[in-house]
């Protein structure tokens, strides 16, 4: 990322990143869904996803990553916030106190008997907020060089 004059050779890093990136992101999804009952959840999932993007930033550079992922991260954070608030507002429709949650077992064709909780919707909001905020911070610091 720095202009040192020397051309650094990061072929190994770049090649590995291309593979590891997907493993990291899938792991972050796994952690996201593990949440609520086991360690994990939106915050950790979001951090690991942003970790994957940061790995991409280190292996390549800010410009390349922007070309691959043309996302405005501020809007991602705002989108996450909106989901989180709306998940709370759902309580108005059901006449229960704000942010109340419920859960139950649903039979889904491929996955079989699945435990679903409304807290996941809120957690999805958290996930987006964490990705959005982390990446906004890292990008702003990275860009000013």
């Amino acid at each position: 990322m720095k202009k040192t004059g020397l051309k650094t050779n990061d072929l190994i890093l770049q090649t590995i990143t291309k593979i590891v990136l997907f493993i990291v992101i899938i792991f972050s999804f796994h952690l996201f869904f593990a949440g609520h009952n086991a360690p994990g959840g939106g915050f950790i999932g979001g951090l690991i996803t942003s970790g994957a993007i940061v790995l991409l930033l280190i292996a390549f550079d800010v410009k390349t990553v922007k070309a691959i992922l043309p996302i405005n991260y501020v809007k991602v954070a705002a989108f996450g916030l909106l989901i989180a608030i709306l998940s709370g507002i759902g309580s108005f429709l059901f006449g229960v106190p704000f942010l109340s949650h419920t859960h139950g077992h649903v039979h889904i064709p491929v996955l079989g008997d699945t435990h679903l909780a409304t807290a996941v919707i809120f957690d999805l909001g958290v996930y987006f907020v964490v990705v959005g905020v982390t990446m906004t911070i890292i990008q702003t610091i990275g860009e000013t060089e």
């Binding site: 501020v74 809007k75 709370g88």
Partner: peptide
């Protein structure tokens, strides 16, 4: 009796703030 209305003065500005980020 459900007193959800108390939360409105807190979440209405919050939703507005979030929407304003988009616009």
């Amino acid at each position: 009796m459900n007193n959800n209305i108390i939360i409105l003065p807190i979440i209405i500005p919050m939703i507005t703030a979030v929407l304003l980020i988009f616009f």
